[in-house]
């Protein structure tokens, strides 16, 4: 509503009722005010601060509020940083695909094939249970799994599938992807299973009666109906993977440097301006990804 419209409304409404109506929403304003103030102070201002500081002048020991593009030039001139930008995008895309590929069949089973509500809930709870263990411990738990003398190598050797332990499992990009997939796949399974659970079984029966085979039904009916769930899951996974630094720190042996890791190192050496540049770039990528995903489906309509 434009200002002119608002003024017009005010003049139409009889003067006597104005106090009652405004008192009505006044209580809402008082209730919401603390939250708005809190989020403005501790979320909006810090993010604006990142943008502002990215243009500050950084010297080895201190930082000054003199505006410059130096830190931006440093970032785009450095192979290390550009590589890390591409690594971040690559790992994000790969993890997005792996969580979808690994998670979708599970969601299909839980949401569509299990029609018993109790069993369905039990399976979903089993997927969520690992979340009550510290995130960092869950990441660390992959080390004895993937290592040269780890469980996977021991089992594969015991079964006689391999003779020499696979060393590529730990402290590589692969270990980071495996770790992230395990940690974030549940965020894909949940929303998809939720959407699949809402499909009317008679719809699939009808398609089957018309002679459609399962793959056709999956492509033409099941997948389109589950798409909002896929998008919600993809937003969850994207937001978390793009801001990641712990999994790569724990499982890559410093070989994989994501943008998040760059921020951590730069802050560690008090290079605030460069850390801010990386922060702004990360924010922009995040905004593009979320906006792009939201264009695929109209979530307000679907949920």
């Amino acid at each position: 509503m434009s200002v002119a419209d608002a003024q017009a409304t005010v003049t139409i409404v009889p003067a006597s009722t104005a106090p009652l109506v405004s008192r009505d929403s006044a209580s809402s304003y008082w209730l919401i005010a603390p939250a708005v103030i809190f989020m403005s102070l501790f979320l909006v201002i810090p993010i604006l601060m990142i943008v502002y500081v990215s243009f500050w002048t950084q010297t080895t020991f201190k930082i000054e509020a003199k505006l410059t593009l130096d830190s931006w030039q440093t970032f785009f001139a450095s192979d290390t940083y550009i590589t890390s930008l591409f690594t971040t995008v690559r790992i994000w895309l790969i993890v997005l695909v792996t969580t979808f590929v690994v998670g979708y069949p599970t969601a299909l089973f839980v949401g569509l094939f299990v029609r018993n509500k109790t069993l369905q809930t039990a399976l979903l709870v089993m997927c969520v249970i690992p979340f009550w263990t510290s995130f960092l411990i869950r990441v660390l738990a992959w080390r004895p799994m993937l290592g040269k003398e780890g469980a996977i190598n021991i089992i594969l050797q015991g079964l006689g599938i391999i003779q020499q332990p696979i060393e590529a499992l730990l402290f590589t990009e692969l270990s980071v992807i495996i770790g992230m997939t395990q940690i974030y796949v549940v965020f894909m399974v949940g929303p998809i299973a939720f959407m699949l659970g809402r499909i009317d079984p008679s719809l699939i029966e009808a398609a089957r009666d018309l002679g459609a085979d399962f793959w056709r039904i999956l492509r033409k009916i099941i997948f389109p109906l589950s798409l909002p769930g896929v998008v919600v899951g993809a937003i969850f996974v994207s937001v978390m993977v793009l801001g990641e630094f712990a999994t790569s720190a724990a499982l890559s042996g410093r070989k994989v440097n994501l943008l998040g890791n760059i921020i951590v190192t730069q802050v560690g050496s008090l290079k605030w301006a460069l850390a801010s540049v990386v922060g702004v770039i990360l924010t922009v990528i995040m905004g593009l990804v979320v906006a792009g995903l939201l264009r695929i489906v109209d979530l307000k309509k679907e949920l």
């Binding site: 409404v13 009889p14 006597s16 009722t17 009652l20 109506v21 009505d24």
Partner: peptide, 11 residues
């Protein structure tokens, strides 16, 4: 509901 005071009358 207007009589009870759950809704405010416009006039």
């Amino acid at each position: 509901r207007t009589i009870a005071g759950f809704e405010a009358p416009d006039a």
